[in-house]
Structures are given as C-alpha cells and as structure tokens.
C-alpha cells in the first residue's frame, strides 16, 4: 500500500486550526486516507476526533496511507500540507 511519512511542521502540532485544515483536506480526497504515528493504529484522516486523539505534536513524524485509484496524488497533497507551518498561515477566508 502506498504510504508517505512526514514530520508535522505546524508549531502547535496537529491541533486546532492545523488539524481542521488537514481533516478538511483529507475529506476532500477521492480516496480514503488513514494516518498513524509510528506503528500505532491507523485512523481515518477525515475524522477530526481521531486525528486529535493521536495527540501529534510539532515535529512528530506521521505516516499517511491510502489504497486505490488516486492514492498517490492524495498522499502527496496531504503530505505537502503537513510539511507546511499551518499555524503561520493566515486563514484564507478571514
């Protein structure tokens, strides 16, 4: 199964606004994506509660996994998102 491993760049980790941006992007993908920390259980990336419960801090490496059509494109898009400091970016619609 295709995977990507990436360190979370957001200063506050995957909480609050960075988590919301990530979960929304995951829900927008055509293929379901899962996320895990190390060898921990993989949870749906489109689930806010599951993503929050991972308790991912700044710099933590997470692994994204997906299977099926468009999996690689979805993983690339989400990995690129996590590699940005989402805390430093202004909300687009504010």
């Amino acid at each position: 199964m295709p995977t990507r491993t990436v360190a979370v760049a957001a200063r506050t980790g995957l909480h609050a606004r960075p988590a919301a941006l990530f979960v929304k992007a995951a829900a927008d993908q055509e293929t379901p994506v899962r996320i895990r920390v190390g060898d921990g259980p993989a949870v749906p990336a489109a689930s806010m509660l599951s993503v929050l419960s991972l308790g991912v801090g700044h710099g933590t490496e997470v692994t994204l996994e997906a299977d099926g059509p468009g999996a690689d494109a979805a993983l690339d898009a989400l990995a690129a998102l996590l590699a940005r400091d989402l805390d430093a970016e202004e909300p687009a619609d504010a």
């Binding site: 606004r17 689930s47 806010m48 509660l49 909300p91």
Partner: peptide, 21 residues
Amino acid sequence: AEGEARDILSAQAMIAADPTL
C-alpha cells in the same frame, strides 16, 4: 463569528460531522 471564536466554532462543527462519531 470572527477571529479565534470563528476557528473554535468551525472545529466544533467538524467534530459534529465526524464520520467516526
């Protein structure tokens, strides 16, 4: 809402829509 309140409420809306829930 505006500012921080907007972000908090938006995150709460996403939780209400959570597929796991």
